[in-house]
């Protein structure tokens, strides 16, 4: 339960996303090699395909990219944008790390919350960011998720959440751990009010986020190929000293063991979510 790959260097893909540089079909165009099919793909093609390789591999998306992809144009209204955590344990190096991540990412925390419309249907939306300390959950992330579910319960709105997380943020120690209980209690209240919560688990969803609000949705969807699990695969391998089964902790593996409802490729993702919202609005008779 921890985040991994802290502040890994921005790859070309992410740079491309942030600058949205005009892309040309010339030989000098930046390419990205797909970790699945190992073929180079021009970035322009990837962007046009919502960061999905023609082979089906789903690259990670930052939270703003995902928001733009999923919400109706201009419908997203951010909630609690300024909410940020401090350094409650005075953990060595944490304040400096947070400052760096904030200035590099332009975000204040690892989750963005707000209201949005999907094909005109209003909902609350949270999107976690793999590029902000690997979406790890500290006190601010826990508070934002909790407030969103409380907000949604008060206004009787469904919640759609995109999860990506290395788990609880260890630099905030026990207080991070407690966010698992806090968010779960807020999800429960929202659920007990008869309201809908859809989670879309994206790569990777692990540790304390898997063991709390990610797995607590009424409808659990996952992007193909996403790593979804509680303990890290390496930890499991070291602990058990056994070879891991093929595809261990992949979305497909989790689906086959009965822990998600369906896989939901990015292509058509919005339509599926929108349809699920519509199915929960009661129909006409």
């Amino acid at each position: 339960m921890a985040f991994i790959n802290f502040l890994k260097p921005k790859n070309q893909l992410e740079e491309g996303g942030r600058t949205a540089a005009p892309v040309h079909e010339d030989a000098g165009e930046p390419e990205k090699t797909c970790p699945n099919c190992h073929k180079p793909i021009p970035l322009s093609r990837l962007w046009a395909n919502h960061l999905v390789c023609p082979c089906g591999y789903h690259f990670r998306m930052n939270a703003r990219q995902r928001l733009a992809f999923i919400a109706d144009k201009d419908s997203f209204q951010e909630l609690f944008p300024q909410l940020r955590g401090g350094d409650p344990l005075q953990f060595p190096g944490y304040t400096a790390k947070l400052e760096t991540v904030r200035s590099v990412s332009g975000e204040t925390e690892a989750v963005i919350c707000g209201t949005a419309a999907l094909d005109g249907q209003k909902c609350c939306l949270f999107v976690m960011d793999p590029y902000f300390m690997m979406g790890s959950m500290g006190t601010a992330v826990g508070e934002k998720i909790t407030r969103l579910f409380e907000y949604a319960a008060e206004r009787r709105l469904p919640v759609i959440g995109f999860t990506v997380s290395g788990g609880a943020r260890m630099q905030e120690g026990l207080l991070s751990l407690m966010q698992m209980a806090k968010t779960s209690a807020a999800v429960k209240r929202h659920s007990d009010a008869g309201l809908l919560y859809i989670a879309v688990l994206t790569d990777p969803t692990t540790g304390g986020v898997t063991a709390s609000f990610a797995m607590e949705a009424d409808i659990l969807l996952a992007e193909p190929g996403a790593t979804i699990g509680f303990a890290g695969a390496r930890v499991v391998e070291q602990t058990t000293k056994k070879a891991l089964p093929k595809g261990f902790q992949s979305a497909e593996f989790v689906l086959s063991h009965g822990f998600v409802d369906s896989l939901i490729p990015r292509e058509g993702q919005k339509q599926t979510l929108s349809e699920i919202l519509r199915l929960h609005q009661g129909g006409t008779t």
Binding site: M180, A211, S212, A214, M215, E216, F248, H257, F259
Partner: peptide, 14 residues
Amino acid sequence: EERGQGQAIAENLM
């Protein structure tokens, strides 16, 4: 992991 460790913990918290 196969039997949903994360799901089991999450459900208890909830």
